[in-house]
């Protein structure tokens, strides 16, 4: 089992001006191969102009068990959103 190709995550920029987006994963022996495989697997239909690959084990992910303390405190900070503030009707856009 030890010789299996590791898993990589693939991020593709579909066109300039857009961010790289997670497209999926694949197996590759090294970074160059991961890039080539990503090109062959995920951009066969002209989906990309730039690719990032990162070995999956290097990604640190937050734990859903902590999502309460991580994300819920942001829920009631309504003053961070423009709709929190009242404007006179005459001002249509601000």
């Amino acid at each position: 089992m030890k010789n299996n190709w590791p898993l990589w995550e693939v991020f593709v920029r579909s066109k300039n001006g857009l961010e790289h987006r997670h497209f999926g994963s694949l197996h590759a022996a090294d970074a160059e191969m991961a890039l080539e495989n990503a090109r062959d697997v995920y951009t066969r239909r002209n989906e990309g102009v730039s690719i990032w690959v990162v070995e999956s084990k290097h990604i640190t992910a937050s734990n859903p068990e902590n999502s309460g303390e991580l994300f819920e405190p942001a829920q009631d900070k309504v003053y961070r959103h423009p709709t929190f503030y009242t404007l006179p009707d005459e001002v249509k856009h601000m």
Binding site: N3, N4, W5, A29, M33
Partner: peptide, 13 residues
């Protein structure tokens, strides 16, 4: 073939 690619990757690393 798969073994060769891993061995090569390790050598490079």
């Amino acid at each position: 073939v798969r073994d060769a690619a891993m061995a090569y990757a390790k050598k490079k690393e």
